[in-house]
């Protein structure tokens, strides 16, 4: 069964590249351009994994992550946070809020794919 991945980022070009990458690797890809949309799609589409950018309009990645984790129905959903702010405090905060892993931009596409696969147990 094909795994479903939600990409949540407000940077159009990053979304284009991730979309291409993950489709090539055989995932179903969904896209959200801001936090609210990401949360809505996560609830409606039940992706297996969310690639969550931190700095997004309307609702930032931390808040989205917290909301996802607060919903018991979404407990099995994996969350991989992406951020351009590479500070330790941000990493800690993200993991503290229930993210499964954390990657700093710019990232290696191979590593990202490997991380996604490992989170999905593939």
């Amino acid at each position: 069964m094909t795994k479903k991945v939600l990409i949540a980022d407000d940077e159009q070009n990053i979304v284009i590249s991730l979309d291409f990458l993950l489709r090539r690797e055989g995932f179903d890809v969904l896209v959200a351009a801001d936090g609210e949309e990401a949360l809505a799609k996560a609830r409606s589409e039940r992706p297996d994994l969310v690639l969550l950018d931190v700095m997004m309009p309307k609702m930032n990645g931390f808040d989205v992550c917290q909301a996802l984790r607060a919903d018991p129905e979404l407990a099995s959903m994996r969350v991989l946070m992406l951020t351009a702010k590479g500070r330790d405090t941000e990493v800690t905060k993200g993991l503290g809020l229930g993210a499964d892993a954390y990657m700093t931009k710019p990232f290696s596409t191979k590593e990202l794919v490997a991380q996604v696969r490992s989170l999905l147990g593939m």
């Binding site: 990053i14 351009a84 290696s108």
Partner: peptide
């Protein structure tokens, strides 16, 4: 940092693809 990393992320991703 954030503003620099964002375009860099796209550039790296596209280049690797």
């Amino acid at each position: 940092t954030h503003e620099l990393r964002t375009p860099l992320t796209s550039i790296r991703a596209f280049s690797e693809l």
